[in-house]
Design a protein around this nucleic acid. Structure first.
Lengths: 219, 219
DNA sequence: CCAGACGGTTAACGAGCGCTAACGGTGCTC
DNA sequence: GAGCACCGTTAGCGCTCGTTAACCGTCTGG
């Protein structure tokens, strides 16, 4: 890892601050908490140093265990990234779809969609970063799954955009949606406003970019 | 490299399409062309597979030579990335600064700035991708240089934004600038429109996001 | 109370990869 | 035409890192 902030070496047993590890011993009753804890730590590290810039030992150290112990929870390092990105993509899609389904009209749907994505980006900047950057490091089947989910998520946006502005051509709507993702996902690069200000700013920029008359071309 | 499109193995000597390699033999008169050719090929590969996903042999193969031959032109693989990213950052900064300096007023300056960045993103999508994704893989000194150049480029934007809208607070302007970068840099993810349509769309989205009244908060 | 799953440990293997070493051919310059 | 800079080549070293092997304490269910 070339970057600074390399995680320290781990203590032989869970460090003081560890919440899990005391209540979830024994067969069967654990698993869930530990796996999530590992994925969270791994996401943070992947976001900072990139997938290949993080070693298995680093991830282990971040949760207070040693490298190879991770293989009790995941089949491989690739599987960690895969599970992480598939989970994000599914979360984004189902949440976005739900927002649209529950909205009374397309205008509200679009605002809700924007806010949904903004909230996610602000609450999980590490996941957003990894999601944007490390797609290329996925296994082929994992990448196919993630790509498929992404495509469906984009379609939700495209449909909503075209319902609010029926004269916009589909390719333009798709390109605009990608642009808005880029806009909103820029959040990890600028954390100088507080959360609510940032959410408002991004939401308004996104809405203005999409709905200002004359921006999206008529077909 | 996990992804498809892995470059084929190279022929022992420059392939048919090679432009350089025939005219620039001998001591002294070459160098420039070859280095650029290598950086271009490397940028393309880095963009597709990530810095660590590309081997020295892959880069060599892409320009028709074998891996270690690259060390006749670059000190190390890190140096290639470093030179690449420093060059981009300088190019972006000096070009952007020039646009602002030559503009008659801030409004025009902002439009020119947007168009400048859009053109660059559309003409060099590989460089943009690498620039966004592989900053973490730079050597510490290289990263410092790139970061410094980026900061200055952002300042050009922040100044221009605040000259057109003096009531906007600096942190908000900075966050907005980052957002617009994300918007414009999303271009590699959506190449479904032709160049000019894409340029217009991105420029208008960016301008609307920045200048629509009520979007950027008053201080 | 004991069988066994769970979830840790350390040691070590093997592959991949960046980089160096050693060497050779080509074409310019004096 | 001797010398040399340039720019290739192949062989191989050494390190990093993902992964597996072998082993062990702890807690639980029958």
């Amino acid at each position: 890892m070339p970057s600074p902030d390399r995680p320290q070496h781990a203590l032989p047993y869970p460090p003081s601050g560890s919440t899990a590890g005391t209540f979830d011993r024994g067969p069967g009753r654990n698993g869930r908490g530990r796996r999530e804890q590992i994925l969270t730590a791994a996401a943070e590290l992947f976001a900072r140093h990139g997938f290949h810039g993080v070693g298995i030992d680093d991830i282990g150290a971040a949760v207070g265990i040693s490298g190879p112990a991770l293989y009790r929870h995941f089949r491989s390092k690739d599987a960690m990234l895969g599970e992480m990105l598939v989970a994000i993509s599914e979360h984004l899609l189902t949440g976005g779809q739900a927002k649209v389904d529950n909205a009374p009209d397309p205008q509200v749907a679009l605002r809700e969609l924007i806010r949904w994505h903004v909230d996610f980006a602000l609450d999980a900047p590490a996941l957003i970063t990894v999601h944007m950057r490390d797609l290329a490091n996925l296994t082929d089947p994992d990448r196919r799954r993630v790509r498929a989910l992404q495509r469906r998520y984009v379609e939700v946006w495209v449909d909503t955009i075209r319902k609010t502005m029926p004269q916009v051509a589909e390719p333009a709507a798709r390109a605009a949606a990608h642009g808005v993702f880029g806009l909103i996902n820029s959040t990890p690069h600028s954390a100088h406003l507080d959360r609510e200000q940032m959410a408002q700013l991004l939401s308004r920029m996104a809405l203005a970019a999409l709905t200002t008359p004359g921006v999206l071309p008529d077909e």
